[in-house]
Design a protein around this nucleic acid. Sequence first.
DNA 1: CTGAAAGCGCTTACAG
DNA 2: CTGAAAGCGCTTACAG
Lengths: 370, 370
Amino acid sequence: MAGIDDVARRAGVSATTVSRALSGRGRVSEKTRERVRRVADELGYVASATAASLATGQTMSVGVLVSLTGRWYFATVLDGIAARLAPHGYDLTLYDLTDDAAQRQLLFETSLRRGRVDGILALTVTLSDDEIDALLGLGLPVVGLGTPSPRVPALRVDDRAVARAAVAHLLALGHRRIAHIGNSKGPGAGCDVPTQRHDGFVEAMTDAGVPCPVFVQTDFTVADGRRATLELLQREEPPTAIFAASDELAFGAIFAARERGLRVPDDLSIVGVDGHEMGELFGLTTIDQFPRRQGERAAEHMLALLTATDDPTPPAAPPATVPVVPARVPDISTTVPVIPARVPAISATVLSEPLPFELVTRTSTAPPAE
Amino acid sequence: MAGIDDVARRAGVSATTVSRALSGRGRVSEKTRERVRRVADELGYVASATAASLATGQTMSVGVLVSLTGRWYFATVLDGIAARLAPHGYDLTLYDLTDDAAQRQLLFETSLRRGRVDGILALTVTLSDDEIDALLGLGLPVVGLGTPSPRVPALRVDDRAVARAAVAHLLALGHRRIAHIGNSKGPGAGCDVPTQRHDGFVEAMTDAGVPCPVFVQTDFTVADGRRATLELLQREEPPTAIFAASDELAFGAIFAARERGLRVPDDLSIVGVDGHEMGELFGLTTIDQFPRRQGERAAEHMLALLTATDDPTPPAAPPATVPVVPARVPDISTTVPVIPARVPAISATVLSEPLPFELVTRTSTAPPAE
DNA sequence: CTGAAAGCGCTTACAG
DNA sequence: CTGAAAGCGCTTACAG
């Protein structure tokens, strides 16, 4: 692999000039820049990320904390993040969070501390207080997406509102025996996404005069949704409608209904949350939260933090929503020019306005039979 | 963040010794090592990945080339890879491949050349000849998983055999009008996965006396599977069975059948490929290829290449299957000790024996009606 | 506009 | 077993 000195020699300039010509930082005559670019291309020279990182203190990489295990939502969000990061020359380091204690410890106490990333995007994963401490103690910008802790600045949808919208839809159809399945650890257990949805459900039901609505706690897979629904359906007073905290749970509910010989929506109405790609085929009514777009916005927000020139006057208004970096796709032929960044202090706990969501009505919901 | 000199000073030794004590490379008295460890813990010191990389030439990171877009299979494989890499102290840099030409060019001509990873895992993605050239020209170990090019050493299942097993199952049930839906670019178009499955299908059908079996080319989503199946079902002689090249396509086929008022399996039998988590709920008969395990094995293989000490006698037998690095989970409390690696030349095009697969018979297949 | 030199924070022969 | 010094390959004040 050619090094910067090879290019310098061949172009008849110093390494300093090569660095400047290729990075776009500092003045270089157009003529010199041209020549250096050409030589770099000939030699196939690209600056070593490692060496550049050590010299600049920037890694040009963003870490993403996620628990991939089979969840469609996360894969989709991740895809959105990757799509936004790449054109800006940022790599994406994936930290797949498992339940394994040793692995988590290794992650938070070592991997994350090795300084390999400039910032961290924490997707909705349940983190312990210690883990949050570790995360915030990194001294890096951290942006959450629907994160569990109020201490992590996060983009998020108003999950109570999501739940209320789903329940309102069912109530409007005439349902009263509405059950909820989700992964809330119980009423008021925290501010994590499943609990918010649970609380929103309870609020809406209470407002409608059903103070103690039925809730079944379960994990987030299709199989779990099926199991929880089967359990609900064999109760004395089975629900006429189910609000599932995710589309995958809702799919499971549809399978369960089918197994019991119930028709959806005639005998059982079902609403999910997410906007899963298979929702349309299942005819699932859902609250779409546009996961890919969420990933894009989270990435945009991170980029904004990372490329913010350390303005002496800290912006009164927080970095706000989207405007972010203009779609300045770097010169592809050579090195990626980058605005030098200084990590700004992050102020707000909740960023900008909540993320959008939308009720998508399909064929899994209808008025109750009787 | 504390640096190595802080630790050295406080422990009363040189930086050299700190490095040795924490990395496990080189002799250090047990007593000194203890003290250094303790001080490092107190100070929360972890060696900078960037500085260490520059000094050693190893990044302790593996790049994964994948096209995430919604495909369950890839997310699952990725999860398997991450699970295997993490305990060995390797990070995972995700390169999400899109169809965008500019982004791909940026990836192959710049991102990948910045020397940020020690090796590359290329999941089944369609790469152009130029891209393969770029990949192989990196001078890094590259391991494919079901990769399109014969030039990339890869772990793979025998996809022709997969197809034959699926078709054999249908033939044994008495089907003759068997159609295939998949993403082969046509007969004999290459050695990529979809084409292999297609060719295996044709072989099996030809052997059974059906020389020109029906094939519909389509993308790999559930919606595509539905569309392709709807098309097949309105032909003059609709198939009695469908072999879908993925479980997601098969799900789409099931939806299509249902839409047309056909019962599965009575009126239409359906077989998929993958071992998708929702397969059981759909009652889908499938060829399970254990995707998570595939990811794990690909990661293990890469680790074996990366940690192979450059043995002067090149092993006559290729690195072979699994034995790999013993499950030597590094000392979590401090820095990760690592066997110094020299990248060995990779010889074989096809690695070890093919990956396993298995027919899982469920309720989507049965003898044809008449 | 251009370059020599110092420095980023580690690791590793080399010497003791 | 331990340390001083060079070096990994860039970038960036500083000086011209």
